[in-house]
Amino acid sequence: MKLISKIATSICFIAVVLMAQTGNSFAQVQAPDPVNLQQTIIVKIDNLGDAAYEFDQNMTQAQWENFKNSTLVNDPSIARRNMERSMSTYVIEDFNRTTDDMNRSVKMTFKVKAMAEYNGNGNWTFKLDSKNPQVSKLADNSYMLISNMYMGNALTQQTIKLYFPDGASNIQQTTDSFGKALFTYSKGGGLMSYLSWNNILGVLLIAAAVFLVIRQQKPAPPQPKVA
């Protein structure tokens, strides 16, 4: 899963729209003062490697006005379509977006299938597709990544909170062959992962049969003699 860059690029249309409204989106013009944007992304990975995303962005009054004036951004179906196309290697479901006029914020939620890959034996891989991200541990199964980037001409700070599934263990940050960061973790696996309901029910039936045989083979208690 190319969490950081993919989501960042996918979501950057908001920043791009904001920049377009400032009239400075074209590169040959001298770079204007950066317009700061704050974005928060929460990623929760479930037991099957799918991820639920929550994206929040607060804006200044000027940014909010520009944002509201954009028909593109105000059309959630276009937003969903653009996100799907910019993340063509993923499957996005349950896309939803809400805006909060009072707090000048936009919130998007969606699910992305197969963000983490299962390698068998309870071992999972979660790719970040970025080199040397600033990662800090929040709790046993949660981490925070902070990145600053220019989207259009806007200096954007992204705070990404990453939650691994409950019960995930041995979470480690490492790199792949190309030096890109990834997380590995363990979830499931072990003996229980080899047992299906067939196996368990079969064992229970065999156990019941054995129990019955043992019970029936027990000698009957001696009968009291009648005088």
Partner: peptide
Amino acid sequence: KKFLLPIILAVAGVVLFLLPL
């Protein structure tokens, strides 16, 4: 006759256990 039920249970259990194979 008294072993009939345990035998049935055991066979069913074995079948279920080995079914995935």
